[in-house]
Amino acid sequence: MKRIVAVALMASAAGLAGCDRTGVDSTVTAEPPPAAPPTATVASETPMTPPADTASPAARPIVEGAPAFAVLYPGGEIEAPPTVATSAAGPGGLVAFRTDADPATVVEFYRARAEAAGLSSVMAMNMGDARSYGAAKADAGANLQVVASPVEGGQTSVQLSWSAGG
């Protein structure tokens, strides 16, 4: 199940990466522009502690320096260390966590944070009790994707990916 959700998340991220609402010609050229190769790192296995300057202890950034819309859902428990990467397009990452909140509540939380950060909704999908949502800020390259689905024990499994843009 996790693999299916991860594949769906990656597919939606790839789809969102191609979204551009500026109307600029987006034809593919034979030679891509030179860019620094992305560097990926996996955070350590040690428990994460929120940065000292966190405004709200209930919603802390996933990793230090993450944008305001890339926070851990209040009460969420991270399942594995977040994967973070930096490229010419800016920093970004992916994290999976569980929470006791229902999928619709989780998605609404991230929609509100994305809109408050100036991102526009570009995708929303419901499939049974599972929910997914995507937002982007085309001129800055920032984006957010969240997939929330119910799992055994009444919890919700959440996959969150983001890019802070450049």
Rank of each mutant, 00 (worst) to 15 (best):
M1L: 10
G76H: 09
P81V: 05
E79W: 03
A11C: 07
L160C: 03
V122A: 07
T49I: 09
G65C: 06
G93V: 08
V107N: 09
V147F: 09
F109E: 07
M127G: 01
T46F: 00
T39A: 13
N143M: 02
R3S: 15
A80M: 09
N126Y: 05
V24N: 10
S121E: 14
A13N: 04
W162N: 02
V71M: 04
A52M: 08
L160N: 09
S132V: 09
E108W: 04
Q159F: 14
A89H: 05
T156F: 10
G118N: 04
T41C: 04
Y133N: 06
V5K: 09
T156D: 13
T49D: 06
G134Q: 09
S56T: 14
E108V: 12
L94Y: 08
T83H: 11
R131D: 03
G15A: 05
Y110M: 03
A101H: 05
T39C: 04
V146S: 07
S132G: 10
A124R: 15
V5A: 15
E115V: 09
S161K: 01
A40Q: 12
E64M: 06
Q155W: 01
R60Y: 06
I78L: 07
T29Q: 02
V146C: 06
C19I: 10
R3H: 10
D20S: 10
L144H: 01
A17F: 08
E77R: 14
P32C: 01
F69T: 02
Y73V: 07
K2L: 08
A148M: 08
G75H: 07
T41G: 09
G92N: 08
I62S: 01
L72R: 13
G90F: 02
R131P: 05
V42Q: 14
A43W: 00
V24D: 10
R131C: 10
V151S: 11
D100R: 14
Y110F: 14
D25N: 14
A89W: 03
L16Q: 14
T41E: 13
R98F: 02
P61S: 11
G15I: 00
V7Y: 06
G154S: 13
A6Q: 10
V28E: 11
S26H: 11
L94K: 02
A148H: 10
A135E: 00
I78K: 05
M127Q: 14
A148C: 07
L144S: 04
A142C: 03
G166Q: 12
A117Q: 00
A130W: 08
R3C: 01
S26D: 13
P91N: 09
I4E: 14
S132E: 06
I62K: 04
A164P: 02
A96E: 14
W162D: 03
F69M: 04
A114R: 03
E115D: 02
P81N: 11
A6F: 09
L160A: 02
A80L: 12
A43R: 03
A11T: 14
P33V: 04
S157L: 15
A88Y: 02
D139K: 04
R60V: 15
G90V: 03
I4D: 15
D139E: 11
I78S: 09
S157Y: 15
P47V: 07
D129K: 13
R60M: 05
S87C: 05
N143K: 04
A148W: 05
G154E: 13
V95Y: 13
P34L: 08
A114N: 03
M123H: 14
V106Q: 08
A104R: 14
S149W: 12
